[in-house]
Nucleic acid binder design. Structure first.
Lengths: 253, 253
DNA sequence: TGCCTTTGCGTACTTTTGACGTAAAGATAC
DNA sequence: GTATCTTTACGTCAAAAGTACGCAAAGGCA
């Protein structure tokens, strides 16, 4: 019925067949411990080379589900707060040859030498609940303070940088409670804000602001064992979902 | 040297081989005309079904370059302002069978029946400069007012909705000048803000705010042919790039 | 000419933000 | 025990940003 130009269709199909890609996920798992923002890194077997946790997306697997799966395996947590933040799809993302030399895998190099497109996800997790677990290509999984992160494999330093910028950008509507334990003090919350934003805040103004937000409730206890005046403990009020976007539904004709 | 468990490696490689995907780009091309926000849509040959412009990412092609290529072909513009905004990678994104029926392509259904992952990009373009051009599967390329968009093929209504929310979210650091002609009036700029944000603003306060921003310069002419008092024409001051993010480079050990 | 709408600019009030003062709590030094 | 020092938990005050609304001039139309 429709007059498609057959050669054009065939041509298109050929092009189409060339349009398949390896798709992976790279995860920047943020935690907060001892007043420092940290990320979870993996050391590859028999090397001193580190990378972000990651993995491949299976056929017919939802990308969000794949991200959950991969991050769950590294953290032992079962429902992470994840946020897709960028697609890393440059034609040349890093020096592949140099990278393969570093991780010297006993697999067919050709297979691994194709360009891979990566979906960047960041996760906000409660540091103390994580059980860092390497995967079968790596032997150590550990927290690194953001300031100390070494030169990583692939383009992973870049990915961390972009993740941090993204986190900073949607800082205001991000549920930071995922990064904190159940109870915490206001100064601790302030350090968290400061490290993410990369600036230092006036404690007195911070206190005012955070109290005015009405999201916190004070417990009767104070944090013991501090060198100075013992600060009160707080907790996020239940309810209160932090992330709500206006609904906007498509018109169905 | 490294002791990899060989069966595990083989297994991994097998899994890996199953982790290839069709990757496409869907573009929400925003334009602004007659005080309305519009998107560019395509009508498929021999049907009355519309979709967003899109295309596939070629092997070894940078995804940003692919997006540029695809949008350029539909608009005739050569350097579009593009923004990656979301990855649509659910396992089931829409009713595939119903969709194929609607567009009845004369190609091997099996090939097209695999799940495709889409990268959503939005573009901000100057409506009057666009030459809407269909691709070889479609016969009409036209602007649709956002309010009138019909039920589209695939999950494209959803994609538009997410695009609009994203645009709204990073509204403040988005160079809206791409949506406007060289010269425009303050009320026109106000309508643009209002349509994107989905609310109505007080003209007097809007005027003050936009003047205080110092980004505009007034020309001596006024817009002729208005039914009422002729408004002045303005233009964005040169220089002044709107999008600047703090640089944050990886530490190289 | 009178009436209506829109533009261009102004005034006044409220809310938010930011700078900074200070007393109480807890630890340490003498 | 007392002086000192740091940190917490408030409070004050002024500048800045945001919001409500007044109004005259410009232009079209009856």
């Amino acid at each position: 019925m429709t007059e498609y130009n057959d050669p054009a269709v065939r041509y298109y199909q050929e092009v189409f067949d060339q349009c398949i890609h390896y798709l992976s996920i790279d995860g920047v798992i943020f935690g907060f411990h001892q007043n420092q923002l940290k990320v979870l890194l993996l050391r590859w077997k028999g090397t001193d080379a580190w990378s972000l946790p990651g993995g491949f997306i299976r056929k017919a697997e939802s990308v969000d589900v794949a991200a959950q799966r991969i991050m769950q395996e590294r953290t032992g947590l079962d429902a992470l707060y994840l946020q897709q933040f960028h697609v890393f799809g440059e034609a040349v993302r890093y020096d592949q040859e140099a990278t393969w030399r570093k991780i010297n895998l006993p697999v067919d190099g050709a297979k691994w030498s194709e360009r891979t497109i990566s979906l960047g996800y960041y996760a906000l997790v409660e540091h103390s609940k994580v059980i860092p677990t390497p995967d079968f290509l790596t032997e150590v999984c550990a927290w690194w303070s953001l300031d100390d992160v070494p030169a990583l494999l692939f383009d992973h330093n870049h990915i961390i940088a972009v993740a941090l910028l993204s986190l900073r950008k949607d800082f205001n509507d991000q549920p930071l409670n995922h990064l904190l334990p159940d109870t915490f003090t206001i100064p601790e919350l302030q350090r968290l804000h400061e490290t993410i934003l990369g600036l230092s805040l006036d404690g007195r103004n911070f206190y005012k602001k955070v109290m005015a937000s009405g999201q916190l409730e004070r417990l009767s206890e104070r944090r013991a064992g501090t060198p100075h005046k013992a600060p009160f403990l707080y907790r996020f009020k239940p309810s209160e979902p932090t992330n709500r976007l206006p609904t906007l539904e498509a018109k169905t004709a």
